Amino acid sequence: MSTLEDSDEETDFKEISSTNYQRVQEKVAKISYADGIADGREKVFQDSFDEGFENGFKTGFELAKLSAFYETIKNAVAGNVELKAEQEAYEELKLADATDKEHFKYLEHQGAPLSVISSKQKTYIDELLEKLAQQLPATTNLFTSTNVSSVNVV
């Protein structure tokens, strides 16, 4: 009888082990699935944030740079006819503040894929900067950086 009992216990043990193994596998699968979703969501959010931050920063920086420049030199341009004319041209443009909703295209394309919104924002700021470069060439040239091919260090 002892052999039969050992056989039953062994069978029971295998059954319990198999059941426990399946439960552990299911839990690991659920946890792994949840972790995968969280990691994917985090990557998408981070990539989206990075792209949106870059677009928003460029838009705000470029617009604020011009606004601050003209505000700073308001009284100093009296002797410089070219800058005085450009300051008047800038004021005639009546650009909204850098943080104004008018400059951010995501509001016009809500629900669109990020790539579309980003493309629209880049196109908007590039076209605006091109327009400003045409209408305010002296000022725009002041802000254009030049690449230095060689630097002599003494």
Rank of each mutant, 00 (worst) to 15 (best):
N147E: 14
E10W: 08
G79P: 05
S118R: 04
V28P: 14
S150C: 07
D6S: 06
F49E: 07
T139S: 13
E71P: 02
L95Q: 02
V77Q: 00
V154S: 09
K74A: 10
L129K: 02
A29G: 06
A38P: 01
K105T: 10
V151K: 10
A38N: 06
I16K: 12
P137E: 00
V154G: 11
T146P: 06
I16A: 11
G60V: 03
P113N: 05
S150I: 15
S32R: 05
R23M: 09
Y21K: 06
V153R: 12
G40T: 11
G40N: 09
K27D: 14
E88L: 14
F45D: 11
L114T: 10
N152K: 12
S150M: 15
S18H: 07
K27F: 12
I16Y: 04
P137Q: 01
A78W: 02
R23I: 09
F53L: 10
S115F: 09
E127P: 03
T19E: 05
K131W: 01
K43F: 07
Q121E: 13
K43I: 15
D12W: 02
F45H: 10
T3H: 06
N75F: 14
E51N: 07
Y124A: 02
Y106A: 13
Y21R: 05
N141S: 08
S150L: 15
L66E: 01
L129C: 15
E9P: 04
A96H: 06
Q87L: 14
A85N: 12
K105G: 01
L66G: 10
E54G: 10
E5S: 15
L142G: 00
K30C: 14
K27M: 15
K122A: 03
V151S: 10
V28F: 06
L63P: 00
V154R: 03
K14V: 13
D8L: 14
T139H: 00
E42C: 04
T72W: 01
V24Y: 02
T11V: 08
F13V: 05
E26R: 12
G111D: 00
K30E: 14
Q121A: 14
E86C: 02
T72N: 06
A98P: 03
Q46P: 01
F53G: 00
A85T: 15
D47W: 05
L136W: 01
Y90Q: 00
M1C: 08
A85C: 09
F61E: 05
S48D: 09
Y33E: 09
A64Q: 13
S17L: 07
G111Q: 01
L83S: 09
E108L: 13
E108F: 04
G36F: 00
N152Y: 11
S48F: 03
E42S: 07
D126C: 03
